[in-house]
């Protein structure tokens, strides 16, 4: 299967005075097409930094990173911006919908940024919003929706561009448990439809929905190849 993510010895650190604060220590990670991966880690483990790097929103000092065959480590800011728009669908913990835009305008944004016509973007967006049962709310502003509904809009926005990778950062973090479960079921459905999903979470229960879980601790990855939601055991990779 085609590799969507291929990271080799990624290292990132911050220079604090004379000290070097290592956030990611030689991370290597492969994610193939159609995979549903959860990266599980506590606060301060480096999981957000890793997510930002996977999402081409942050730089790293060492290593190589290929995203859908593109050498991220060689690309400049403008190329990374383009890559984000073309290949990645973002789902954030706090939805990150633009409050002054209505549901449809928010959903259309990735397509409009690509230069698609408003009409065509609206058609595609309507299709995704209808699929996510938000077709009746297209002209509502985000603050007129519940958390779960806002997250559905965010998922629709992530899907409209048919990205190679859906990158979700704590997607249930701001939702109650029932709504969170619904969103996770939605993720499972999207996975079954062939989408590649990488989900960052600190919650073991949330991670258990993924088919593969990797734990990150102090900037290092640990993988349990046969993840069992009832008996989570984490062992060091290799």
């Amino acid at each position: 299967m085609e590799k969507v993510i291929s990271m080799k010895d990624i290292r990132k650190w911050y220079q604090v005075g004379e000290n070097r604060l290592e956030v990611l220590k030689s991370i290597s990670l492969d994610v193939v097409e159609g995979e549903y991966l959860a990266i599980l880690g506590p606060s301060g483990s480096g999981k957000s930094t890793l997510m930002n790097i996977i999402g081409c929103m942050d730089h790293f000092q060492e290593g190589t990173y290929w995203l859908t065959g593109q050498p991220v480590h060689e690309l400049n800011d403008a190329q990374l911006t383009h890559l984000r728009n073309q290949q990645i669908g973002f789902i954030f913990q706090k939805y990150h919908l633009i409050q002054k835009y209505d549901v449809l305008q928010n959903t259309m944004m990735p397509l409009l940024i690509r230069g698609m016509s408003r009409k065509q973007a609206a058609e595609i967006s309507m299709e995704k919003l209808t699929m996510l049962e938000m077709g009746e709310r297209v002209h509502h502003k985000p603050n007129e929706l519940s958390g779960g509904q806002q997250q559905r809009v965010a998922i629709a926005r992530a899907l409209v561009g048919q990205p190679k990778l859906l990158l979700a950062d704590e997607p249930t973090g701001a939702l109650d448990s029932a709504t969170g479960k619904e969103v996770l079921k939605l993720f499972s459905q999207l996975h079954k439809m062939g989408n590649t999903i990488v989900m960052i979470t600190h919650d073991l229960k949330v991670a258990s929905y993924a088919e593969r879980v990797i734990k990150i601790v102090d900037g290092e990855l640990y993988e349990n190849e046969t993840f069992d939601s009832e008996t989570v055991t984490v062992c060091k990779e290799g």
Partner: peptide, 16 residues
């Protein structure tokens, strides 16, 4: 700022 961040995350260029 957050709106700008969202637009940039979604792929809006500096020029835009």
């Amino acid at each position: 700022t957050q709106e700008i961040g969202i637009l940039k995350a979604l792929g809006s260029s500096k020029k835009e």
